[in-house]
Every structure is written in C-alpha cells, then in structure tokens.
Design a protein around this nucleic acid. Sequence first.
DNA 1: CATAGGATCGTAAACGTTTACGGGACGCGT
DNA 2: ACGCGTCCCGTAAACGTTTACGATCCTATG
Lengths: 347, 347
Amino acid sequence: MKGIRQLAEHLDISIGTVSRALNGKPDVNEETRKRVLAAAEELGYVANQSGRSLRQGTTNVIGLMIESSKETIEDSDNFFLGLTGGLQSVLARHKLDLIMLPCPNDEDPYEYLKRMVARRVVDAMIISATQRVDRRIDLLSKAKIPFASLGRSLSSGNSSWIDLDFDGVVNCAVDRLVAHGHRRIAIAAPSSDINLGYIFLDGYRHALERHGITYDPSLVIRVKTSEQGGYQAGHALLQISNRPTAVILIYELMAIGLYRRLTEAGVIPGRDLAVIGFREEPRAKFLQPTLTCFRMSLRDLGAELAETLLATMPAYSHFYPNSARNMIWPLKLIPGESDSFHLMAAE
Amino acid sequence: MKGIRQLAEHLDISIGTVSRALNGKPDVNEETRKRVLAAAEELGYVANQSGRSLRQGTTNVIGLMIESSKETIEDSDNFFLGLTGGLQSVLARHKLDLIMLPCPNDEDPYEYLKRMVARRVVDAMIISATQRVDRRIDLLSKAKIPFASLGRSLSSGNSSWIDLDFDGVVNCAVDRLVAHGHRRIAIAAPSSDINLGYIFLDGYRHALERHGITYDPSLVIRVKTSEQGGYQAGHALLQISNRPTAVILIYELMAIGLYRRLTEAGVIPGRDLAVIGFREEPRAKFLQPTLTCFRMSLRDLGAELAETLLATMPAYSHFYPNSARNMIWPLKLIPGESDSFHLMAAE
DNA sequence: CATAGGATCGTAAACGTTTACGGGACGCGT
DNA sequence: ACGCGTCCCGTAAACGTTTACGATCCTATG
C-alpha cells in the first residue's frame, strides 16, 4: 500500500473524493464513504503524515520536552509517565498525539528546543522544569509556537503555565510544625536554578515571619532532589550547632536518604526530628515512621495542563474562553507519623 | 522566516543551490556555501521537516515506544531516561533524532504502534517489554520497518534484539545461595506476560536441577515488579509452610517492600532470609542490610541497542556488517550483605 | 419545458523540500 | 578556432496529501 492514489485507483474513484471520504468532509455520498473506509481498512491505508502536514501546515502532534540531564524535581520516577497519561486523556479528544522529546545530555536544551521547533514537527510544546529565567520561553514566544510550561518563571510574561502550590505547601508545613511547638525549622531546597526552589524558599521565609520566627540562613540546606541529596541533607543537619527540631523537604524521595543518615547517627526520625515531605512518592510509602507529606494527582495535573495548552492554540481556543491561563495547582496534606511523634508521646 | 524560497530570494540565489549548500552537497562553490550558511543562521532558517521527509521518504527520526500502563520491569522513567541517553549518544553521530512514543493507557499497544508506523513519522522503531508472543514484532516485520526490541520473544524470528542475561543472573544467584548452604530458594517473578519472566523461571528451574534440588512450584511467587509487589511477595513468603531460607527477586525495587513486610513480621532480611535482587536501582541503595544485586549500565545498553538498530537499517547497514543482531547483555554481580549474613555470622 | 439548486464528484493547484538534468562559463590542449 | 572537461548554478519535477473550484447529474418547482 503506497498512498492515497493507489487506494483511489483500486476503488476507481478520484483521489479527491477518497480524501474527503476519509476526513469526514460533507461533500461525499454516504455509500461511497463506506466503501472508501472499508477499502482503507482492508488495504491498511493510513495517511502519510508528511504529506498531510505539509499541505495543511499542521502536524496534530504535541511535544513534551524532557531534560534527563537536569537535576530537577521532575527528573525521576514516574513523573513524566504519570503526566503523559493525563495529557493524553485530554489530547486524544481532539485527535492530537503526544510525543516526548528527550534533550540529549550533551546538547544545550535551548538549542535542542530551537531545532525541534524550527523543523515544525509539533504544533505546540509543553516544557517543564522551568528555570528562574528561562530562555526557552522567549524562544517559543518569539517563534509564535503555542506552549504551556509546568512551572512559572520570571520569563513567563503573559504565557500560560501551571505551577505547583509550593507557597501554600510550605506555609501549611510551617504552620503545622509551629503548632507542634517547633521553632527551629530547617528546609532542604534544590541546588539547581529551578524556579520553584525560589518560590519554596520565599514561602518559607514568609511563613516564618508570620510566626515571628527570625530567619536563619544556616537552616537552609541546598542539595540535589534525590535520595543522595536527602542523605547529604541529613548529614548537613547533624552538623548544625543547636540542631533544628524539624525539617521540610522539597521532595519526598529525599526522605529515604535522610532517614538513613539519621538512623546511622542514632537520631530517630519523627521522634528526634520532625520531617515533612512533598508530593506523595510511592517509593517512600514504606518508610517508618510514615511520612507526612503533600499529595497531588499527576494524572489530573496532566489533564489540566493539556487544557491550558489547548487554550493557547488558535485552532482549539474556541473551546476554551480565556487564552492565557495561569494556575496554582493545590496539594493535599496527607498526615503521617513523621511530624507528630511529639503529640503521640505527649498523650 | 518562511521557507527556503525566502532564503533564496534574500540571497538572490536559486532555491536549488541553497538546498545543496545547506545539505553539504558537492556541486556548490565554497564561498557561496559560506554565504548561505551565514544567512540561514542569521534568519534562523531550519528546513521544514514535512517537506524534507515527503521528498526523500525518510524522517531521520527513531521512535522508542513506551507503555506506561504495562506493569513491567521497564516501567519507570529512570529506565527510559537512562536508556535514551545511551541511544542518543550513538544516534546523534548519524544525525538521527530520538522521540519517545508513549502509548495511551486506554489504547491497545498494537493499534497504537500500527498507527504510528503507518503515518511514517519514524524511520525505525525500538520496542521494549516484549511479551512472550508479541504481535508488534509481526507487525513491524510485515510493514518492513527496521526495528530492534529490548527483550527477545517467541515472535522474534530473525529480527534483532538485545536481551538482559536473566538466565545467567538467576544461575549465578542460585549458585551463590547454594554455596551459602541454602536449599529452599524462593523466587519472585512478574505476574505479567512479559517474556523475561519465562526466561527467568526457566533459568531458575535449570539451576536448581543442576544442583540436584527438586523444583517446588509453591516457591514461585508471582507479583508486580514494584515495592508493592515486593511487599506482597514478603507476605506470601511468610505464609509458606517450611519457610524458604532465601529469595531471588526479579526486580530490585521489590526489595524495599519486601524488607518492610519482613521487618513487620520480625524477620530480619539477610539473617533470617537471604535476598538477592537484580539491576542496581539507586532507590534501593539505602537499604539495610545492603542488597546483593546484579548491575548493568543503562547507558551502555542504550548505545548497544542503537547500534543493533542501525544495523537493521538499509541506509546505515554498511557501517555494521551483519544485519540481524542478537545479544545477551551481561550483568555484573555486586555483593552486598543481604545474602551473606550466614557467612558473616559463621566467622 | 426550462431552470434553479442541491448533491456528488473530478481536476488541479498548493504546501516546502530535494535532486536529476541540463546549460553556461571558463580553462586547457590540440 | 575548436573540442572537451570541470565547476557551478538554475530549472523543474516529484514526494503524498488537502481543498478550492468547477463540472455533472438529478430533482423539484415555476
């Protein structure tokens, strides 16, 4: 099966009619449409994507850029796979396909994105792990490619984004810890230039201020968002004179390494040091004591992100009223034992 | 910047010469080539992929199919991200790009692959998580799409594949456990129809036979390859009358859940039950006692897989002599404490 | 009967690129 | 002066599809 021409010859119908029949256009007899569809199915014909997108200037493909090299919060576990599930659930309704574009480690993400965009292989893009200032956003804006980013940035002018509610999370965490009597609260933030790290720390400072606690820079630990980083964070915590009684982790996976390091030192998590994590991570579910953390549905987030993106695409924007969408994605507190040992002991 | 035509007009050169200059064809003056490249860089021109691939019938894109729904060993981002790194390191040398094609959860993987292949959006495919009989292999063979699979299958006739050496791994594990005095050795295999599960169990049976140990089906536990599955495996282990003294896990992540369940029951991993895992998983690095496991380099595996694929592509096969390649990927034993408590205690 | 108009289909142009082919300019040897 | 080869470049066809436009046929209505 070569192309639509062979299919047309086989049916003894003109090529134009075949195309109209396949694409559901009105000017075609219902009976011939049946014939065409049957023949296409039988011969296994599927339209060549290059020809189609060359003609109509659209590819019906959405790209999700992935940076495996970056040490980011998203760079682990099933984050992207969970996200794609939600994305596809919405995109499929508009017959849009999703492909993941992994940026090679040795290539500059900006150049990679530029290359992919210029080749016009996707209609729109989703980027994540946005830096504090992110040139990719300027690039996409200037190239007039519809896009949405997971995570806001200083660069995102009136572009569309969804960001996790790190401000709310850290405020809630501090409130909770203070209510439990803690005053010296450490925080483990990412060492990379990802923007949510800044939001996280700003929220932390603001929450402390609200409770009349003076900000102590020595309680801010910058490590990678991994178990390794958690281990290092634990190590750093143990070095602090006048040791803090609580710690907030920006990524839950860090708890695994943290627990390990604390246990090595004879410090029992939850009893000697309260711990609060972020984003329920299945891998951390087996920790003892169970981790108090904040949770979200990756699938729902992906679905919302897809709709945010569609709203920026002229071809679909009539489905969605306001074009530029910004949203703070809420997270739900899942209480565990890791920050309530105090209470339990007091009872 | 629209297309090559505008670039040609801007340079006052014919469109054909511009194309030849950009593509490094010989029939073009070196000086004009410089001019063209400079102008292209300045105006930010990049060839439209649809036009190019329509003309030359090739896309220069390799697809990596991903099934997020399947409960498989590869079902984790880190696996694919590690793999893509290795794949890209080789593919980049031939100016080939890699895209990941995630199959939606609610779509049949076979139909999805069929759709992607028919649209001619990729030149070649890599599939993984091959089932015991896998229709995708027949599909790709019949469609004459070059492909390689990670994991052999009963369906793979003389197609190319790389498979992990599960046979060697399980034999080595059994040898080691027997040498430590174990006779009742359980095994946790995947519950899905993935082919490596069969290879794993065959190797297990064969190894037992070699040591004169009669095969006991009640020692075979089928669970998901996750922490959850490990937890369930631990639970199942505890139910077995005449409890086994050792267990081999097909996936290391399962050890986390297993440890948890054992600890809950007061059974100490390593002392009361020897454990051997497979494939070093960073998340499991913090287990205590440290896990004896088998390790490989995902990056190297990806690179080898890329070369295996290239060998099947007519356009690149002259680089690689034999077209159909099959390979068993070796794994290295990383001794830990989880299976040598006996020895340590004996000393 | 004439004609309007709807239903259905065929024709051909267009999308952006690559490449086979031919032609002009020039140098060189006879 | 002529032929020949080399170097460089322009022309135009081709890839597979969609779609605007026009043609044809049929029916209904005056």
